[in-house]
Design a protein around this nucleic acid. Structure first.
Length: 486
RNA sequence: CGGGGCGUAGCGCAGCCCGGUAGCGCGCUUGCUUCGGGAGCAAGAGGUCCCGGGUUCAAAUCCCGGCGCCCCGACCA
């Protein structure tokens, strides 16, 4: 009995975080390995989460004036080369198609690692006047980056994402857009994923290849490693110049547009897993759960079964009308306990147990995936009660994730030794002064494996900014957040 | 690309050292009994032992050569 229980349980996080992560994904049936190295199959349970994310983000993009479009998978190889930094950054990780229809192609085609180039070439056709601006587009698509080492959801050769691409008449407008979308991501990640993020600027070493400035959102996972949850780039006029995206201004002059791009991907699913889940399996924030409530009917005899199932279905109908996503698990031949374990592993936020005793009492047993055991509830007003539970769990997940992050954060170490010790002993974010020298970044990485995740926005800082670089003791140019990262 | 590990039933593994009819657990199918925290019994289905050579009367097992995957390091959403 003991052994059987063990064989069904996940490796505990404390024992081996990486094994736990992989086993959880298998057990919750979120994804599986493909026959092709480095690629993943997203299974229905995982894809449903992605669909919830897409729906929420897509609405937010449209609310901010963006339109969806679709640009092709294949990009002429020469396009990448038009922006010097861009080709240097992406060439090593592209997949290239050399043959089609049994013949060698005149020009090889790159499978898109991102679409700035093809979009730049199209924008140059479509944009003539300042009256055409701004152009605010987004596309949902797959991209391919030939990675050396992969990990389900966090880094795979092919992944799903959205990439927003915009063109503006002025630098200020482009910067505003870049920051606006960073804010949209932040709202989404806090309100839906329940993941607290730090926003800020990337340093030169982590700037997007071809961008003028890159901003990012960084979250801290349960193992105290940082995960980049999305990026937003002010591309300046770099791609506009490379692809001649120019327009006539109101006073008749010619200028190149200022463009932006921003993206976030299925990696967020990995971030969600590593932020909230526990040794029993996935914990899915209720706003993103395809099934917020699962009803498990309990019965002994056939007549009970009929009655209980009927009541369960009626309850489901009622709750659905009340705006909840509900599933009745009427499978036969599986004991209720087995169903409990299964739905817990899959991250369903709420379980309702409905049996003969409940029918007599006009009650139902509620079990929460996080934040408390079972309680008996009356049937009256249950939908409203559960909507309240959804909100409460959603807030609770964000709050506890924020508390955990702050617990794993060191602000302003007193010495270089304290800084290094913290990073080397499995600590999370460290806020410390930085003189701005890239060589310091490299040296810190060499010794501690930690990098500057972000130069944080003001609101994430506490107290007076450090005056000295933690590494060199020189005057600090920036306050930086350091961590080991995925 | 460097280091480590592993390829045997859907999944996890044993068997290999010491060659001789391919096994165990979970899962799956059918039936009966069960059902408020991972059910029990009974009967079944399911395998080119990663691939290709070689040695041998005989290879999952020994030898040679490939391939693949996972984990740990250098790059990356």
């Amino acid at each position: 009995m003991r052994r059987m229980a063990d064989s069904k349980a996940l490796t505990p996080r404390a024992q081996d975080f990486s094994a736990w992560y992989n086993e959880l994904i298998a057990k919750a049936e979120l994804a599986d390995y493909s026959p092709v190295r480095g690629c993943m199959v997203i299974r229905p349970n995982g894809f449903a989460i992605w669909e919830q994310m897409q729906a929420a983000l897509d609405g937010m993009f449209k609310d901010t004036g963006h339109e969806n479009a679709y640009f092709p998978l294949f990009i002429p190889q020469s396009f990448l080369a038009k922006e010097a930094e861009h080709v240097e950054g992406f060439a090593p990780e592209t997949a290239v198609v050399t043959h089609g229809g049994g013949k060698e192609l005149e020009e090889p085609l790159v499978v898109r690692p991102t679409s700035e180039t093809i979009i730049g070439s199209m924008f140059s056709k479509w944009i003539q006047s300042y009256r055409d601006l701004p152009v605010l587009m987004n596309q949902w698509c797959n991209v391919v980056r030939w990675e050396m080492r992969t990990r389900l959801f966090l880094r795979t050769t092919e992944f799903l994402w959205q990439e927003g691409h915009t063109a503006h008449a002025t630098e200020a407008e482009a910067e505003e857009e870049t920051l606006k979308m960073l804010g949209v991501y932040r709202t989404f990640q806090e309100q839906y994923l329940a993941i607290p993020v730090i926003t800020g600027r990337k340093t030169e070493s982590e700037r997007f290849a071809g961008a003028m400035r890159t901003y990012a959102l960084e979250a801290l996972m349960q193992d105290n490693k940082a995960l980049q949850m999305g990026t937003s780039h002010n591309l300046g006029q770099n791609f506009a110049k490379a692809f001649d995206v120019s327009f006539q201004t109101a006073d008749g002059a010619m200028d190149h547009v200022w463009s932006t791009s921003w993206g976030c991907s299925t990696r967020m699913i990995g971030g969600m897993i590593m932020t909230h889940s526990d040794d029993n399996g996935l914990v899915c924030p209720p706003r993103l759960a395809q099934r917020q409530v699962v009803i498990v009917p309990i019965h002994k005899t056939d007549s009970e079964r009929g009655q209980v199932l009927e009541a369960a279905n009626a309850l489901a109908t009622d709750l659905k009308a009340g705006g909840l996503r509900v599933h009745v698990d009427g499978r036969e031949g599986i004991k209720p306990g087995a169903k409990y374990y299964e739905w817990e592993a899959r991250g369903v936020p709420f379980r309702l147990e409905l049996g003969p005793r409940d029918l007599t009492n006009r009650s139902v047993m509620l079990a929460r995936r996080t934040g408390g055991g079972k309680v008996s509830l009356g049937m009256e007003g249950l939908a409203a009660t559960l909507r309240g539970e959804v909100d409460q769990m959603q807030r609770g997940l964000l709050e506890s994730a924020r508390a955990r992050r702050e617990g794993g954060t060191l602000r302003h170490p007193k010495s270089k030794e304290e800084f290094v010790d913290y990073l080397e002993s499995g600590g999370g974010f460290v806020y410390a002064g930085w003189c701005g020298d890239p060589a310091v970044e490299a040296a810190v990485k060499e010794q501690t494996k930690a990098t500057i995740r972000v130069l944080p926005d003001t609101e994430f800082r506490v107290g007076d900014a450090p005056t000295r670089c933690i590494w060199t003791g020189q005057p600090a140019q920036y306050e930086a957040v350091w961590a080991r990262a995925y």
